[in-house]
């Protein structure tokens, strides 16, 4: 569990004062998977570093895994696992040695450590390169090893800072699946990213920060409702029959857009209305080839929010 109250961080330089995070108040329950979204420089990394006790807060405080980040920083560090944006791995050392070092530091049982290392490298599909120096790894492999490193002591809270940064599409997809797998357990995961597209199917909640302030805290579903983003249906019917006149009377249809060749995109109030729509079309002698649900992307909504 993570509870932050009025958490803030101001950096003082000789020339200026930068408020990187202000009044960040949030409660993340055990087992929740939360995305911390925001453009570059919004304060995401500062938030992660504050919660992991790397930075001391200027204002407010937080309880992470039951420990106060100000009075019990070492206990907080023992409770969390962190994968920073730049994987903290020693390039000259092998994957095994890197994990062994962190396992020892976190006090993992030395008799069980080698088993744990093998288990993690198996999970992350890195077992074949276990004894290769990290300098020979691709960016995707390093990112996976960095997450494995964060999990070495089996922490109840996992903080991932920009895990998709600089990855190829293939590595991105692979990593998304891995995080999805991790999210299925009872582990609290906070993922800081500017890439919402990777998170839609993984997260329980979305926090959006911009210019150091939390501007939104909501579940993906609530987000859609709150901003009146209705679900869409893709419909393909036989011939070029005019659909608009048929569905005009249905009060749950918000908008109809013809895509040509008998294809339509319909904005409806809820997917629960789909069976009724199909029934109405069949009653009107329309032969349906295809009906599919389209969940409108949150990406555009997020970009709109951040730009505002």
């Amino acid at each position: 569990m993570i509870i932050a109250k009025d958490l803030g961080k101001t950096f003082l330089t000789k020339q200026s004062k930068v408020e990187a995070l202000k009044d960040f108040t949030v409660e993340i329950k055990s087992g929740e998977v939360v995305a911390l979204l925001g453009p570059n420089g919004a304060g995401k990394t500062t938030t992660v570093r504050l919660l992991s006790t790397i930075y001391r807060p200027t204002t407010g405080g937080a309880i992470v895994g039951g420990y106060d980040i100000i009075t019990n920083p070492i206990d907080v560090r023992r409770t969390i696992g962190i994968a920073p944006e730049q994987p903290s791995l020693y390039p000259r050392l092998t994957a095994r040695r890197n994990l062994q070092f962190y396992g020892d530091i976190y006090g993992y049982d030395k008799y069980k450590l080698s088993g744990r290392i093998e288990e993690l490298l198996e999970l992350f599909d890195l077992k074949e390169v276990i004894d290769r120096p990290v300098s020979s790894f691709s960016k995707g492999m390093r990112q996976k090893l960095s997450i494995a490193k964060a999990l070495i002591h089996n922490p109840s809270i996992l903080l991932l800072d920009e895990p998709w940064s600089g990855l190829s599409p293939h590595a991105t997809k692979e990593l998304r699946q891995l995080i999805k797998q991790l999210a299925e357990g009872n582990r609290t995961i906070l993922i800081s990213t500017h890439n919402l597209a990777q998170l839609e199917l993984i997260v329980d909640r979305i926090l959006i920060i911009s210019k150091g302030s939390l501007i939104l805290d909501s579940s993906p579903a609530e987000l859609r409702t709150k901003f009146h983003v209705n679900p869409h249906l893709k419909l393909k019917i036989e011939g070029n029959k005019e659909l608009k006149s048929i569905v005009d009377d249905l009060d749950y249809i918000v908008n109809v857009e013809s895509l040509g060749n008998g294809e339509y995109e319909l904005e409806i109030k809820s997917f629960e209305n789909t069976p009724d729509l199909v029934k109405s079309l069949v009653t009107s002698s329309i032969r349906i080839h295809e009906v599919s649900e389209i969940n409108p992307s949150l990406e555009e909504l997020y970009l709109t929010l951040v730009s505002e």
Binding site: S52, T53, P87, S88, Y90, Y102
Partner: peptide, 14 residues
């Protein structure tokens, strides 16, 4: 320089 410091500072080492 190598970006490995964050792992150390986030660890339980004082």
């Amino acid at each position: 320089d190598r970006g490995t410091a964050e792992g150390i500072v986030a660890s339980p080492l004082t």
